[in-house]
Amino acid sequence: MAEDNLTHVMQFILLGFSDLPNLQGFFFEISFVIYLSILIGNGLLIVIIKINPALHTPMYFFLGNFSFLEMCYTSVTLPRMLTDLWSQKRTISLVECAVQVCFLYILGAAECLVLAVMAYDHYVAICKPLYYPLIMNPTACVQLIVTFWVVGVPVMIEEIYQIFSLNFCGSNKINHIFCDSSPLFQLACGDTYNIEVYIHVVALIFILIPFVLIVASYVKIISTILKLPSTSGRSKAFPTCSSHLMLVSLFYGSGSIVYLWPKSSQSAASGKVLALFYTTVTPMFNPLIYSLRNKDVIATLGKLLPQSHRS
C-alpha cells in the first residue's frame, strides 16, 4: 500500500480512436481538412472585418474576437490530435494535459460571454437605437473584452488547480481524444465528489448565465420587432439577429449534445465523436454563417479574391 501511494501518474496516454486502426489515415485527413478550413475561414473573416470600414462597428468587433477565440479553441485540441494520429505516440505529460484543459475551459467560457455580449449589442441596436452610440462606444467594447479575461482566467485556473490536485495513481489511459475533466475523474484516486460539484457549479455560472442573458435579450428584441409599424423595418432588423441566433444554436446545441446526453447511454466511441463535433462544428460554420448572409462581407471578399489572383 505504501508503494502504491508513492506511485503517481506523471504521463497519460490519449487513446483517441486507436481502437479503429484501419481508419487512422481517414481520421487524420478529415481532421486536417477541418482544422485548415477553420483557420482559413475565421482568419479571412477577421481580415475582412479589419480592412472594411463599413464593418468597424461593435457587432463586428465582437465577431472578430469570437472568430479569434474559435481559432484558438480548436488549436488547443486539433493539432495535438493530428500529431497523435500521425505519429501514433499518443502520450501527453501531466503538465501538458493540465495546460490543454486550462486553455480549453478559458476559451470556452470566453466564447459564452462574447455570444452574450453580441446578443446585448443587438438588443441595444434594435430596442434603444438612440442610445446605441453612447452605450456601445469603442471604450466600452474594449472594456467588456478585457473584463472577460479578468473574470474568467483566475476562476478557470483555480478550477484546473482543483482537478490536478487529485492523485492519479491508477491507469494512465485516457479514453478520449483530448484531456477533459470527465475522463480524468475516472482515473483519479480517492473521492472526487466535492471537486466535481465545484466544476459543475462553475460551468453553470459561465454557461447558463450567458445563455439566460441571450434569451432575455432576444425576448426583448422579438417583442420590439413585432411592434414595428412597417414590414420593411422588420425585414431589416431580423437578418441582423438571425446569423447570431444560428451561431448560438450551433454552439449551445452541440454543447448540450455532449454534456446533457445521458452518460449511461453514451458509449466511449460516441462520446469521442460528439466531443470532436462540439469542438469543430461552430468554428467551421461561423465564417460561412456571417459571410453568406452579409452583403458587406461578400463585397469585401469579392474585392480580395481578384487582388490575390492578380498577385
Rank of each mutant, 00 (worst) to 15 (best):
E111S: 11
T74M: 04
I163D: 05
H56F: 01
F178R: 10
Y60M: 07
P229R: 07
P262H: 01
S37I: 03
N167D: 11
N172R: 06
N294P: 07
Q88A: 08
T240F: 14
I92Y: 06
N294L: 02
Q162V: 09
A2H: 15
V142I: 14
F66L: 15
S267H: 08
N42P: 03
L276T: 05
G255N: 12
P183N: 03
T300Y: 14
K272N: 09
G253K: 10
K128F: 06
N286E: 07
F12Y: 09
L44G: 11
L94D: 04
V258Y: 11
S235K: 15
S18K: 13
K295T: 05
Q186D: 14
A275H: 10
T282F: 12
H200R: 11
W149S: 03
P306W: 04
T282L: 10
I40L: 14
L144K: 08
P53F: 05
S181C: 10
L134A: 12
T280G: 00
I205Y: 06
K227H: 13
I214D: 10
S264Q: 11
A119G: 07
I30M: 14
G233T: 03
Q100Y: 09
S18Q: 07
I49F: 09
S87F: 09
T300C: 08
L144I: 11
R234N: 10
I209K: 06
V201L: 12
C72T: 14
T7Y: 02
I199Y: 05
L82E: 09
H244R: 01
K50D: 09
F68H: 00
F211L: 05
M118C: 05
S232M: 09
